[in-house]
């Protein structure tokens, strides 16, 4: 997704979040990120669709492990080429926060 698209999506979700929840700043950031980068394949509720896997019921540890593999360019499953560019620039902290967000909200 291009920068403009990401930015616009974040504006969209931020508006929704500020109006409907009282999550912490970190949680809101992860909600924004998930909506902009993850939901188009894994779904708004993370239950997966088409040939994209569900993220529901996964532990934060497993999700972090997967993201670290993708960041290292190690394939996990047939759709890995879509995850490589997304994970490539994620920091350790970002992986930890995103994994925790997904596990907590879609566990």
């Amino acid at each position: 997704m291009g920068r403009v698209a990401i930015f616009a999506s974040i504006i969209t979700v931020s508006t929704a979040v500020s109006a409907t929840s009282a999550l912490s700043d970190d949680a809101v950031d992860m909600q924004d990120y998930y909506a902009a980068e993850c939901s188009q394949c894994h779904g708004r509720a993370a239950r997966g669709m088409a040939s994209f896997p569900s993220l529901r019921g996964k532990t934060a540890e497993l999700l972090a492990e997967r993201l670290e593999s993708y960041r290292a360019g190690e394939a996990v499953g047939p759709n890995s080429m879509l995850m490589f560019p997304i994970a490539k620039d994620l920091s350790d902290e970002m992986i930890e926060n995103l994994s925790a967000y997904i596990a907590e909200n879609f566990g």
Partner: peptide
């Protein structure tokens, strides 16, 4: 509608 219209703009390329 409001959210949808912004999201639609985001996806326009």
């Amino acid at each position: 509608r409001l959210l949808a219209s912004v999201a639609a703009l985001a996806m326009t390329a």
